[in-house]
Design a protein around this nucleic acid. Sequence first.
RNA 1: GCGCCCCUAGCUCAAUUGGAUAGAGCAACAGACUACGAAUCUGUAGGUUGGAGGUUCGAAUCCUCCGGGGCGCACCA
Length: 651
Amino acid sequence: MILAFQTDLTGRIRQTVSEAFGVTLGEILVQTTPRLDLGDMALPLAFDLAKKIGRKPRDIAQELAPRLASVAGIARAEVAGGGFINLYLDRSAFTRRLASFVSAPPAPERRDGRVIVEHTSINPNKAAHIGHVRNSILGDTFVRLLQARGHEVLTQNYIDDTGVQVADVIVGFERLEKKSLADIRALDARFDYYCWDLYARVFEWYGEDRERKALQAATLHAIEKHEGPTAQLGEYVAARIVRAHIATMARLDIGYDLLVRESDILRQHFWAKAFELLKETKAIHFEEEGKAKGCWVLGMSGSEDGLDENKIIVRSNGTVTYTGKDIAYQLWKLGKLGLDFRYRRHEDSTPARPLWSSTSGAADEGAPHFGTGASLVFNVIDVGQSYPQRVVKAGVAAVAGPDAAEGTRHLGYEKVVLSKATAKELGYEVDEDAGVVKVSGRRGLGVKADDLIDALEAKAANEIATRDPERVAKDREKAARDIAVGALRYFMLRFSRNRIITFDMEEALAFTGETGPYIQNSVVRAKSILAKVSAEGHDLQALLRRAADKDLLGSWLATEEGSSAWSLFLAMARTEEAIETAVRTEEPSVMTRHAFQIAQAFHGYYQNPAHTVLRAETEDLRAVRVLVVDLFVRHTTDVAGLLGIPIPDRM
RNA sequence: GCGCCCCUAGCUCAAUUGGAUAGAGCAACAGACUACGAAUCUGUAGGUUGGAGGUUCGAAUCCUCCGGGGCGCACCA
């Protein structure tokens, strides 16, 4: 609710400054003050103005402050420091505005143009691990934030079902285990876990005899040709693993609208079309000599980032590289390819969350048209892929122009490594000199996503059992699931994207301090207060109406208790701003900190025994306290929802 | 060699993108349950922001140099 307020405010400031100094201001920065007793908002604009009109910042501030004090919603304005103008809000009016906003949040204004977010995109050859979890949680949360900003979002998960990683597992099944499709179908072990081990074994097996590595290329070729038993096997294995990944991510409340399979990109001849476009626009050229003789290369020298490099797109044997396929895919996302997939409903589609898949078979009737193009595309891919992502962007720029390239965003994030302690705990051999341990799919080294979630659930169930032994098992399990999800999502989001996360089991399992469960706990407590007040015969609605009185609120907010509540109100009002910042800076961690700050403000308020609702000295006090708790519950449930953090009934 | 990222309290991270006295969590220490559930709260201690220069009203943030660590620069994906 703060954005509309600030828009009004900056409009008035612009007008006032223009009248007083005849200067038109650009962007007007509205900041927070270091401490609440210095005011609720701070304006550093006198510093900029000082340069423009050649006067001292403090003098300018002195002159402006009294004029701003008359703006609606501002109680008073003071000059502080070298020339800050600090604004004190009309707490009563602001709180009433907040209350109506929170009890009936307006739908965000719809923005033009569709946004595509691609995330997860795990190779379909083994179980998901913690690195993938970071990707998916980051992407899913960003989707939620975009939607909260009014964007229409299409969430995609790219399935590289014709890649070498799948081929490796197929080599394992065919050569190492001598299994047929029927044998594999009959496997009733956890399939993604089975393949995790098999994949590691295949690399050991390759290592024993160099000749064996040739099987990888042959198998890949068979899969790409989409003929014969090996290709059938590849299709089956990839599809089954994808379903395992979907199930894993569903535990974290992560879903998709569309799965795009690389095999369909090949069979719909997306690349052939993209190749034409790249040639037409002279984005790529044929290399007659030198290192890349006989290849089609994309020149990067003319690109904006000034890289003086060439990237091979078509090999001398005529096959296209992954980067080339990615350019085709990216052009499709932007609606610039002129081709579309056919679509079928996926097996894991539900009425609540429809899921579609690209297909080269028959299209389902009534399937949506996903290929109409997006104005903005976010690719959630680890930061190690920055270079190929830049190449893709350069290709897009050449074919579709600078706007399309600008709409192609790499939402990069650093990797997740294991702490030494956790690696040891998992039974891996650890080099004593190493500070951390890198995960390695080839060596089967890493923490599987489902194992991690299981561990979190077990720990949460344990905690509940010690605190609340009477609790029935079913109820306990549901709460444990919610807590596990809250803990994991918060943990993966609280770091900036460019931070390497050193994953430590003990740290990830923590439920105290700056964690998801801290936020969940604050809301659960608040809800239990409301339930109790209601159970004692108080009418919550009547109390809320009573609290809405302007004078009652005004005088109470001036008290010490009111100030404590005020800091909470102000924090809640800033949610809109936090969402805007998180989306603009493409940094979801902004939101976790914001949520934590709100929860912390509430804990600070309600923990004070002098602020008890049940034993309130007067009905007026009970009324305003109910207002605090009620607003907090409603609002924080929504904020947690933006982070994908569920609120259990009890915990 | 070239490019990108990181270095902030003992540890893990923030700092509204150049703003006020650099803040949180964990760990440590001292307190608070006869109080709407203590997964909580209150307090104490902890800093030459890797180092040195520079830019300006103002620098953790921008520039230059140096040091330490990580990643990328495939006819792999």
